[in-house]
Design a protein around this nucleic acid. Structure first.
Lengths: 225, 225
DNA sequence: CGGGCGACTGACACTCGCGTCTGATCCGAG
DNA sequence: CTCGGATCAGACGCGAGTGTCAGTCGCCCG
């Protein structure tokens, strides 16, 4: 039956490409069978319908992600563990850009049932992350703040960075990106300065208070994703 | 013609609700006309097709966002400006949760043309934000790191927080959320500690290095969105 | 009063893509 | 060579959903 498995895999691979290129709704069965070089009927020999093949792709990639996860051991130095974790996630997504794009931009909005399942995943995982952050706060490793807000922020940040990287298909320095993300986690992006109440009216290149540049354009971007 | 405008607005409002509830693809013209209490034909008197009404909703909301934006003046204290900016964004989205949900989760993946336009928006805005961050780095206000990675991270973080808030429709403390987001921007989430190379093997509740709790579950959440 | 106008209606014809099915073809095993 | 299973090409029927169009209705104006 290794023959059958190979054929199945071939169709899966091509379907993945089509989904990534066109998006779920624009991807027609005809596109998939054409890309896979098989007849229409053959497709239905291996998969019940379009939804089923999409779910299988989704499930397989999800599995890779889950495997890449490791709990942080607070008894040991945390920084290298977190760096390694970030790097693993980057690798999983960037090694399969097509699936990454599908997961990050097409997965939502398929239908009510699929959305429901994603939401369920999301809320389970959010709760776990919340607990992890709360625990970190208890240990004094994580700063105060609503754990759920922090968690969503981190998750969203990583998602967006990955999505943009995959979309623009520009050259990616994974090592540098890992460090950048870690830097945000660890220290934020604004320079820490003593509480200088400097009203700083006049000119001169004296830096005012310790806060960052965040201009109008920023959120523009936000929504475009 | 105020009559005509009113009718148009009525259809727009109801369509917004339907899109928010069902998502773009699941929302049928029949759903919209039923919700608006008009006949099928009437809909086409006011809008060319489903795509057109969606674009109009999108365009209007986008306008509100653009208006809410203000450039950060580095000559004046930055912290209050950034806090106010975060708060304005929160207000725009949370005051119209239906549109927020549509924008944040249904906008991508409509079709090739719409995606293309979103990407254009995104890359323009990303470039502007990149410039802002780079400028901030020149001024010493923003820490080193790839401006584009930082920018995407921030944008993604804000998006995700908003999306989850809108989705779960739980009670929201806008003031506290504003502070939480600012805190991440300004200082990250991990507690800063001196470079203690503490290998810290044994037990004991001594805190190791200054890094945060980020466990396996986290990314699970990531993808679910 | 009646004729015309424009907003509105909803049944209808049409398109599109899905999933099935049929008969032909290919190929390895016996 | 022959048989049977897998595959092929593509025609087919079908249901969902769209956009249209002939017709209705209330209103105003002469």
């Amino acid at each position: 039956m290794t023959d059958r498995e190979a054929r199945r895999q071939q169709i899966l691979d091509r379907a993945r490409d089509v989904f990534a290129r066109r998006g779920y709704h624009q991807a027609k069965i005809d596109d998939i069978v054409a890309a896979a070089g098989v007849a229409r009927g053959t497709f239905y020999l291996y998969f019940q319908d379009k939804r089923a093949i999409f779910e299988e792709l989704f499930r397989r990639f999800w599995q890779k992600i889950v495997v890449s996860m490791a709990r942080i051991d607070v008894e040991r130095p945390v920084e290298p563990q977190v760096l390694a974790q970030i790097r693993r996630i980057l690798d999983v997504f960037l090694d399969d850009p097509a699936m990454a794009k599908i997961l990050l931009s097409d997965a939502a909005g398929l239908d009510a049932e699929f959305d429901r399942r994603l939401l369920a995943f999301a809320s389970d995982a959010a709760k776990l992350l919340e607990d992890a952050l709360r625990e970190g706060q208890d240990w004094g490793l994580v700063k105060p703040g609503s754990p759920s807000v922090l968690g969503f922020f981190l998750v969203g940040g990583v998602k967006e960075v990955l999505l943009q990287m995959v979309r623009s298909s520009m050259p990616i320095d994974r090592e540098a990106t890992t460090r950048d993300i870690y830097a945000v986690l660890a220290r934020g992006i604004l320079v820490e300065t003593p509480k200088v109440k400097a009203r700083a009216a006049a000119a001169g290149a004296k830096r005012p208070k310790g806060v960052g540049a965040k201009g109008a354009p920023k959120r523009k971007k936000t929504l475009a994703g």
